[in-house]
């Protein structure tokens, strides 16, 4: 059997809100390592990889590896029924075709359980190679979300360029152009407000803003976002999930023909 218990149930709610519009169905893999998921959007332009390590849960039991096929919109519907302070337990017995979500209020005076039917999903697992990135930008996640939102009111694509000057986000559309430059800034009171740019090589890549805005739905999960860029690879937009793992979004670039 498989069982996990998470006192900070709001975290699972946030994870679902971050991915439910990007991916329709996905296999959630449960192993001794933890609870993980990898899935592409329907057009295979973006990939999301989620890992919640077993040590991060208050209770985690996985007798044997299982893969649970889940419709994310339906899982999000169920998790919406959990209170923000609720303790969440997820349970699946071997050989059954459903998974149970149990929500306990902090004072234990309300206990709900929801059973979600599992589905057979033909998903392709992709091997993501370890890569040395040309540039890695760490910045406040809210700032990144704001930039993507602002630029999408002007254009459909964003050019992200990293140079010695900083990281530049540019777009163009019918009404004109926009450029937003963020410089490295480590002289802030709080580390979560810092912008740190590690550059090995200058890099400039073009991406669809629609996807960036979708990734930014993970903003409530982490105060900082890490953007890793290489000229011949998909960008990685990573949100760390406190002490537990991460949600990583990979986005294939737009390439000049």
């Amino acid at each position: 059997m498989f069982e996990l218990r998470l006192e900070q149930g709001s975290l699972l709610k946030k994870v679902m809100e971050a991915i439910k519009d990007l991916v329709n169905d996905a296999n959630f893999d449960c192993s001794a390592t933890g609870f993980s998921m990898q899935a592409m959007d329907s057009s295979h332009v973006a990939l999301v990889a989620l890992l919640l390590r077993s040590e991060g849960f208050e209770h985690y039991r996985c007798d044997r590896n299982i893969s649970m096929g889940i419709n994310l919109a339906n899982m999000a519907k169920i998790l919406k029924c959990a209170g923000n302070d609720d303790i969440v337990t997820v349970k699946a017995d071997d050989g059954t075709d459903s998974v149970t979500f149990m929500f306990e209020s902090p004072t234990q005076d309300k206990i709900s359980d929801f059973e979600l039917k599992l589905m057979d999903i033909d998903s392709e697992h992709l091997g993501i190679p370890e890569a040395e990135y040309d540039a890695i930008v760490r910045m406040p996640s809210a700032e990144f979300a704001r930039i993507c939102k602002d630029l999408s009111s002007i254009g459909d694509t964003v050019v992200i360029s990293v140079t010695k000057e900083g990281v530049k986000f540019s777009t163009r559309g019918d009404i004109g152009t926009a450029n937003i430059v963020c410089r490295q800034n480590t002289s802030v009171d709080k580390p979560e407000e810092a912008t740190i740019i590690e550059m090995k090589e200058m890099v400039s890549l073009t991406f669809a803003l629609r996807y960036m805005n979708s990734f930014a739905k993970a903003t409530p999960l982490a105060s900082q976002v890490t953007i890793s860029l290489s000229s011949d690879l998909p960008v990685v937009v990573e949100y760390k999930i406190a002490e537990m793992g991460y949600i990583r979004f990979y986005l294939a670039p737009k390439i000049e023909e």
Partner: peptide, 14 residues
């Protein structure tokens, strides 16, 4: 116009 590439052209299926 630049053309949208796909994830599967970068990462291989396992």
């Amino acid at each position: 116009h630049p053309k949208q590439s796909t994830i599967t052209s970068f990462f291989t299926k396992l």
